[in-house]
Write a protein that binds this DNA or RNA. Structure first.
Length: 357
DNA sequence: AATACTCGCAACCGCAGCAGG
DNA sequence: ACCTGCTGCGGTTGCGAGTAT
């Protein structure tokens, strides 16, 4: 408070970066790492404030950034994570390797938000707008539980992100590793810091606990029953309600038909033809080696394929048990159970140094 | 062809949280 | 315990490119 922003210094340049400036910044970071952002501009011979340099680096120059159009999987992941986490772009970005929080934020604001709104879905709550009047029934209670879980997850993500930051500050070596063009370098760093969180009692893989909790709720006294939010007073039964709410949320989300039907239906059709989660979750060829996020997204997508039975055409049924059309609530919960168990299996099987977990 | 309008992205701004002194 | 400085996050803005009139 009262401290003037660094960019207020006279003589500091603002606005778009020139190729020369980019080159200077890149060269400096590759050689020395960023170290203190505050000190970097003078050392690198740039007439910019440290903040501007950091932004340019993280949003544009970093070698592990993927640019260009977002894939359908990425879109789905963003929508679903946004439903969980809200506008926590950095947290969402941790689940989308090679995408920056800024890019995700922009994409959300310019594309996804509008699309949801157009479909009559509140981009904030991810619920149909005419559903806003939902009162104190089970659903809103579930939503509250869901929100509680999301907050918990957010806290974990933040803690983990902090550790990553700390490790990056350790010195030029780690920073230059990050700048060497290898996402793996950063990933392993991330994993090593994350592993600190894997100690018993410590915060663990982002999402994992939420998934376990949900799964535990879905399967009653099942696999995740022992897991409880450190901050939570929710019973596993309550979490179970949250789980149902989450699945409901995902099912009613635009990615489950309307949206994708409207745009890129063909791609969507292709995507929903992904293999059954259970199949790859138990497939040793798939599980440990791959990118978890990719598979998680695939899982979401393939689960969404089942959601199509809720769409107008009521057509395809996904789950081998598809016989019986809407399946009834029994199948519904069975599906959810399988769904989360599949994720759990995958998570449990994924290596502890997975880039994401 | 000229102008107005819209869209998307890069960058900025202000705030909050954290760590070190 | 308090203060100060640094970093990162989320919201917002400005500008260039593309499209419509």
């Amino acid at each position: 408070m009262g401290r003037s922003p660094c960019c207020d210094k006279i003589g500091l340049k603002k606005g778009p970066w020139t190729p020369e400036e980019d080159q200077k910044l890149l060269a400096y970071i590759e050689e020395h790492g960023h170290g203190s952002w505050r000190a970097l501009p003078t050392k690198a011979g740039l007439q910019r404030c440290g903040k501007s340099c950091r932004l340019r680096w993280t949003n544009y120059l970093r070698p592990d950034i993927k640019r260009g159009k977002f894939s359908l999987q990425e879109e789905q992941t963003i929508i679903q994570l946004h439903a969980l986490l809200g506008n926590r772009w950095s947290a969402i970005a941790t689940h989308l390797p090679k995408r920056t929080d800024n890019e995700i934020k922009n994409y959300w604001n310019t594309h996804l938000k509008k699309r949801l709104a157009k479909m009559g879905i509140d981009p904030v709550t991810h619920k149909p707008k005419n559903d806003a009047l939902l009162s104190s029934d089970g659903q809103s209670k579930s939503a509250a539980n869901l929100s509680h879980m999301a907050q918990w997850e957010s806290a974990r993500l933040e803690a983990e992100a902090r550790l990553v930051r700390q490790s990056k500050l350790r010195g030029p070596a780690s920073a230059s590793a990050a700048s060497s063009g290898s996402f793996q370098a950063q990933s392993s760093e991330f994993a090593s810091t994350s592993s600190q969180l894997h100690k018993p009692g410590g915060a663990a893989r982002p999402c994992l606990d939420v998934l376990k909790a949900w799964s535990g709720g879905v399967s009653a006294a099942g696999v995740g029953g022992e897991l409880e939010s450190p901050t939570s007073t929710l019973s596993s039964a309550a979490v179970g309600e949250g789980s149902a709410a989450f699945v409901e949320l995902v099912r009613s989300s635009p990615c489950d038909g309307g949206l994708m039907k409207e745009e890129g239906e063909e791609e969507w059709k292709h995507l929903v033809a992904l293999p059954e989660p259970a199949a790859w979750a138990s497939d040793s060829e798939h599980v440990p080696s791959g990118n978890f996020v990719e598979k998680f997204t695939d899982l979401l997508l393939s689960t969404s394929s089942g959601d199509r039975r809720f769409s107008d055409d009521g057509g395809e049924s996904d789950n081998g048990s598809g016989s019986g059309g809407d399946g009834g609530s029994g199948d519904y919960y069975e599906d959810n159970k399988n769904y989360w168990n599949s994720i759990l299996n995958l998570v449990n099987a994924s290596p502890s140094d997975s880039p994401i977990f």
